[in-house]
Design a protein around this nucleic acid. Sequence first.
DNA 1: TCTTAATTGCAACTTAGTTGCAAACACAGA
DNA 2: TCTGTGTTTGCAACTAAGTTGCAATTAAGA
Lengths: 149, 149
Amino acid sequence: MIKGGKPGRLTLESAKSVLREVGMRCTAARIAVIQSLDAARAPMTPGGVVDSLCEYGFDKSTIYRSLTELNEAGLVVRLDLGDAVRRFELLPPENDGASEHPHFMCVDCGKVVCMSGFDVELKGRSRKARAPGIMSEVLVRGHCHDCAT
Amino acid sequence: MIKGGKPGRLTLESAKSVLREVGMRCTAARIAVIQSLDAARAPMTPGGVVDSLCEYGFDKSTIYRSLTELNEAGLVVRLDLGDAVRRFELLPPENDGASEHPHFMCVDCGKVVCMSGFDVELKGRSRKARAPGIMSEVLVRGHCHDCAT
DNA sequence: TCTTAATTGCAACTTAGTTGCAAACACAGA
DNA sequence: TCTGTGTTTGCAACTAAGTTGCAATTAAGA
């Protein structure tokens, strides 16, 4: 499990141990991807990760592959935040599955915020309204405070 | 305003009058796009519209342009349903702006359902939790009843 | 019917992401 | 610490989705 709490606090050693725990080799590319995701406050697009790591000499195909592998290993969730771009987010320590909190995305500036600390409740307006399935992920779109003013 | 209710019931004449109302020329391509969206029960991806109309000889660039123009004219909404693909939905008669209801998308089969009749409530777990902005659109993802069983 | 601006089809282009493969590397075992 | 082996990487070429410029065509008002 990933030690420590706040984003941007993941050390080289803890990144390595995270990889070893899931049986993946510790390579520079994977560690860079993990640290890049960790340093970001919000979920990152694959393109964003590529941009941030290409300048250090990593190849885009390596980064795409790393993201996919980390996702398959359960270290990273792939979010679909509704702007026609996938995003990746490093899973927090205690989390063992999908990202549990809702996400908010500003339709003006594109900023994505994790709404940890919020629960979502869906209320049918009539008695007979029935949810179409089992809810697993919620995305709220709208105008963030900065853009709304 | 678009007359008549159920999907798949939009006649050639009503498609034409819808276009004239917003000051657009009535062309075969636009009518085909409107009828294609109308015939679908769920929002369509641009690729889906292209596939369904290419076989009738329409060019993909024409279809993309038509979708964009119809969206700008307010006849069609562009939805971002979180599967990294944009979708287009013909606006119902009474609707004059954005799609107001939440949408549900099944992560297994990709089915999209309009959750008309549902309200969404966001509850902060603590007193000081503050929503990051003004909510305008909600997407719920999960497993639909068919796939969950 | 004629005129003209709007629209279309084509082809070339852009961008995001994927794939095959040889070279480089991590790491378990000696 | 060194070595062998299977994993991972970088490269380059490729695919798919969507966009753009432009000449030819067409809708619709005069």
